[in-house]
């Protein structure tokens, strides 16, 4: 990882854009998952999707948000993060991490149209 040794998770990771190994945007860091270790809490994964950000909004927004978008969420293991700078870079393709699937689906559908 080429990131600095000290990382401010709130400032440098949360709500930042995630970019896969091909440089394609595949979501935002909607939440961060920790795991208990003998040395204290450690980052386990980045969480992406409605299931992640629903916990961060006012209750009414959360209820409406869940009704509209569901509660799916993708967990991106911390080991896949290779750089924390302007964006969070991963070492795998979005599809392999189950990210950006809806965009891929919409893209396949649009590809049927001319000059898409």
């Amino acid at each position: 990882m080429t990131s600095p040794r000290r990382i401010d998770l709130l400032r440098d990771v949360l709500d930042h854009e995630i970019v896969d190994a091909d440089g394609i945007a595949c979501g935002m860091v909607d939440d961060i998952e920790f795991v208990a270790t003998p040395n204290g809490p450690a980052v386990a994964a980045l969480l992406v999707g409605p299931g992640a950000w629903l916990t961060r909004v006012p209750s009414l927004v959360a209820v409406i948000g869940e009704w509209l978008f569901g509660r799916s969420r993708v967990s991106v293991p911390w080991e896949h993060v290779v750089d924390i700078s302007e964006v969070i870079r991963l070492d795998a393709k979005a599809a392999d991490l189950r990210l950006g699937r809806l965009d891929a689906k919409v893209g396949r559908w649009l590809a049927k149209l001319p000059m898409s």
Partner: peptide
């Protein structure tokens, strides 16, 4: 996902909005 407490809060917020 949304807890009972969240749903109660949501109801209160919705009532204020209404």
């Amino acid at each position: 996902m949304t807890t009972r407490l969240q749903r109660h809060r949501a109801l209160r917020e919705a009532l204020v909005l209404i």
